Amino acid sequence: MYDLHTHTLLSDGELLPTELVRRAAVLGYETLAITDHADASNLAHLVEAAESVRESARCYGVNLLVGVELTHVPPSLIPAFARDAKRFGADIVVVHGETVVEPVAPGTNRAACACEYVDVLGHPGLIAIEDARAAAQHGVALEITSRGGHNRTNGHVVRAAREAGCRLVVDSDTHAPSDLMSKESRWAVALGAGLTEAESRETLSLDINRLLQK
């Protein structure tokens, strides 16, 4: 099990990073990314802070991915910020996509999908097919999310990913302890988004190391 999109007290989550890791371990997660909300003001700090928890995660048997979620960053600055995050040591860069429930700047999806340093486009909303094709070309995974509001467009995201041939991931966008999904919940979210059983099985058992190799 993996979750590539979670938040802690370092941004707007409710848990210390180590408590988040422990709760994920108890649920059976093998890979967890801490991706707190980032912009120019805190990018380096978030990477450094999450890195300090890596040994604790190992003690609990969790492969911790140090990451950030670039949030409401102007689209023209996404490539530079994503590159800087990787330069600071981030394993994974998520971009806060054009969800239908927040005023994300138009063009955010396009900038993320065309960026070689971005790994996941979180809750992409009503993503355009040309942006999904750019994601396929640049190895950016589109997210199916369990988070309320953001999940309204999961079905559209699945259809766009199918047509474009890009990768999908299933994440929680965890902010509170109750947001972490059980194995059964992850399965329900995948099927509920419109994936077939075979597609769900493939998406939920991705080789994350391979996904992040570009």
Rank of each mutant, 00 (worst) to 15 (best):
L20S: 00
L20Q: 04
V21Q: 04
V21R: 09
R22G: 02
R22P: 00
R22K: 13
R23F: 02
R23M: 02
A24W: 11
A24L: 14
A24N: 12
A25P: 01
A25S: 08
V26Q: 11
V26D: 01
V26R: 04
V26K: 06
V26T: 08
V26Y: 00
L27R: 06
L27H: 12
G28V: 12
G28I: 03
G28C: 09
Y29H: 03
Y29F: 04
Y29T: 00
E30H: 11
E30P: 00
T31L: 02
T31Q: 03
T31A: 06
T31S: 11
L32H: 11
L32A: 08
L32Q: 13
L32Y: 03
L32N: 02
A33M: 09
A33C: 03
A33F: 10
A33G: 12
I34G: 07
I34P: 07
I34L: 10
I34W: 00
I34H: 05
T35Y: 00
T35D: 00
T35R: 13
T35S: 00
D36V: 11
D36I: 08
D36E: 01
H37W: 08
H37N: 10
H37F: 09
H37S: 07
A38N: 01
A38Y: 05
A38L: 14
A38V: 11
D39G: 06
A40T: 15
A40V: 12
A40L: 06
A40H: 07
S41G: 08
S41L: 09
N42P: 04
N42H: 14
H45F: 10
H45Q: 11
H45N: 11
H45P: 02
H45R: 12
L46G: 12
L46Q: 05
L46M: 08
L46R: 00
V47W: 10
V47A: 00
V47Q: 02
V47D: 02
E48G: 06
E48C: 13
A49V: 05
A49Q: 08
A49Y: 03
A49N: 10
A50N: 10
E51L: 02
E51C: 01
S52E: 14
S52A: 09
S52W: 12
S52P: 05
S52T: 15
S52D: 15
V53S: 13
V53A: 05
V53E: 12
V53D: 03
V53F: 07
R54P: 01
R54I: 09
E55C: 07
E55G: 15
S56P: 10
S56A: 11
S56L: 12
S56W: 15
A57Y: 01
A57I: 11
R58L: 14
R58S: 06
C59V: 06
C59N: 13
C59I: 09
C59K: 07
C59S: 14
Y60V: 13
Y60D: 15
Y60A: 08
Y60I: 12
G61F: 03
G61L: 07
V62Y: 03
N63I: 10
N63L: 15
N63K: 10
N63R: 11
N63D: 04
N63T: 09
L65R: 08
L65Q: 10
L65S: 12
V66T: 13
V66P: 04
V66Y: 03
